[in-house]
Simulated scan of single mutants.
Amino acid sequence: MALEMELSPVTEEAFKKYFRELLLEQVNEIRQDEMKSRPYLNKKDMAAWLGVSKNTLDKFIIGKQTALEFLKDHETYML
């Protein structure tokens, strides 16, 4: 049983925008979950995970555990 509706162009565009944003949100969530499960990240992913620029991590590939330990050791300095 199919439900068919005729929408105005404005409403149709609003629905498209809503579903596009919903889909992008889900894709980003899946990417974040996938990144959390990897024990090592490349520079681009590590920079995104830490919320810093790629230049900050230039020439390094850092284990997440090492980064977490560093952040825990220095969390009072990050305020």
Score class of each variant (00 low, 15 high):
residue 48 A to V: 13
residue 57 L to S: 03
residue 40 Y to F: 13
residue 43 K to A: 15
residue 42 N to E: 07
residue 26 Q to S: 07
residue 58 D to I: 15
residue 2 A to W: 08
residue 19 F to N: 07
residue 16 K to T: 03
residue 47 A to I: 06
residue 24 L to D: 14
residue 13 E to W: 00
residue 79 L to W: 01
residue 61 I to S: 11
residue 37 S to E: 14
residue 43 K to D: 13
residue 27 V to K: 15
residue 28 N to P: 02
residue 21 E to H: 08
residue 42 N to A: 12
residue 4 E to I: 08
residue 23 L to D: 05
residue 18 Y to R: 06
residue 28 N to T: 09
residue 32 Q to S: 12
residue 33 D to W: 10
residue 49 W to G: 04
residue 20 R to K: 04
residue 70 F to W: 13
residue 25 E to W: 02
residue 76 T to K: 06
residue 40 Y to H: 13
residue 30 I to Q: 15
residue 25 E to N: 09
residue 71 L to G: 09
residue 72 K to F: 04
residue 58 D to Q: 12
residue 39 P to G: 05
residue 63 G to E: 11
residue 42 N to G: 13
residue 52 V to N: 10
residue 46 M to S: 01
residue 78 M to P: 00
residue 18 Y to T: 03
residue 36 K to R: 14
residue 10 V to N: 03
residue 32 Q to P: 02
residue 17 K to S: 01
residue 4 E to R: 12
residue 22 L to E: 11
residue 8 S to A: 03
residue 71 L to F: 06
residue 62 I to T: 06
residue 49 W to L: 05
residue 69 E to L: 10
residue 4 E to T: 10
residue 46 M to I: 05
residue 76 T to C: 04
residue 35 M to L: 14
residue 15 F to A: 00
residue 52 V to P: 14
residue 28 N to F: 08
residue 34 E to G: 11
residue 59 K to Y: 09
residue 32 Q to A: 13
residue 51 G to S: 11
residue 44 K to Y: 10
residue 71 L to K: 05
residue 12 E to N: 10
residue 70 F to I: 04
residue 30 I to L: 09
residue 74 H to Q: 07
residue 28 N to W: 06
residue 15 F to K: 12
residue 12 E to M: 00
residue 55 N to Q: 11
residue 73 D to E: 08
residue 28 N to L: 05
residue 39 P to F: 07
residue 22 L to P: 04
residue 55 N to W: 10
residue 40 Y to E: 07
residue 16 K to H: 03
residue 48 A to S: 15
residue 15 F to W: 11
residue 74 H to N: 07
residue 13 E to H: 00
residue 44 K to E: 07
residue 46 M to R: 00
residue 52 V to M: 11
residue 71 L to N: 08
residue 38 R to G: 03
residue 45 D to K: 06
residue 4 E to S: 08
residue 10 V to C: 01
residue 34 E to W: 10
residue 19 F to V: 00
residue 59 K to L: 09
residue 59 K to C: 03
residue 69 E to M: 10
residue 58 D to N: 11
residue 71 L to M: 09
residue 39 P to S: 10
residue 20 R to C: 00
residue 59 K to E: 10
residue 8 S to D: 05
residue 21 E to I: 02
residue 40 Y to P: 01
residue 40 Y to T: 11
residue 42 N to K: 15
residue 21 E to P: 06
residue 52 V to G: 12
residue 2 A to L: 05
residue 33 D to Q: 15
residue 38 R to C: 13
residue 22 L to T: 11
residue 36 K to E: 15
residue 37 S to G: 13
residue 47 A to F: 09
residue 58 D to C: 13
residue 31 R to E: 14
residue 29 E to Q: 07
